[in-house]
Amino acid sequence: MSCPKTQHVMLEYFSDDLAPLMREEMEKHLASCAECNQELESLLMTKSSLEAWQEQRVPHWDRGVELFSREHRTSKTGNASWDIWQWIPTAASFAMLCVLLLNVNFSTTEQGFSISFNSGANAQSDVTEMLASFEGAQQLEMNQAIERMEDRQDGNNLRMMQAMLEQNQQATAENLEQIYAYFEQQRILDLQDMRVGYQQLVDSDYETIRSLQQLASFVSFQDDVR
C-alpha cells in the first residue's frame, strides 16, 4: 500500500531548484503512482488554505514616534540624561514589583498569615534600598553596554509580573530574586541577540551568527523534548 518514494518525491516537488532531468523523472513517477499523487494533492490543498490568509490591519499604535521625538530632543542635551532615562522603565518595573509584593504580603497578613514584611515607612525604605542597590549594579554594567542597550518594554514586564504574582500568592524574597534574575537574563539575551545580529549583518557573515546557533540549538532542544 505505501510507496517507499513518497517522502523523497514530495521533498523534490517542493524544492526551489530541481534539475530539469530530476523534475522530469519526478513527474513521471507522480503520473504513475496513485499514492504519491494523492499525497501531493492533499499537501497542495493544505498549502492553498494557508495561502488564503488575508492581510489584517494593524491596530492603532504610536509607532514609537513619541519615543523618537523624546530621544531626539534629549540627545541634544548630551548623554548624561539619556543614560539615566534608559533605566527608567526597568527601574519602574522593579519598583512596581516591590510594591506589588509588599501589597500581596500585607493582605495575606490580614487574613491571618504571618509574613515578615513591615508596613508603612519600613516597606518604603525597603523599596528604596532595593532600588538603590539595583541601580548601583546596573550603572556599572551600563557603562559598557550603553551603546548596545535595548530597553525592555515596561508594560510587557508589568503584565508578566502580575501574571506570575497571581499564580504565586505567597510571594517571597526568593521569588522576587528569581523574577528579577529572569528579567535580567532576558535583557542580556536580547542584548546579545541584537549585538551579534548586527555584527553579523555588517560583516555579511551569515554563517557564524551566534544568536542563530542559539536559536538552532533551542529549536532542536524543542525537538528533543518532543
Partner: peptide
C-alpha cells in the same frame, strides 16, 4: 502587537548601525 513593538524598537535602536 507586542512583537510589532519589539521589532520596531529593535530596528530603532540599531538604525544607526
Amino acid at each position: 502587537m507586542d512583537l510589532c513593538q519589539e521589532v520596531f524598537l529593535g530596528v530603532y535602536r540599531n538604525l544607526h548601525r
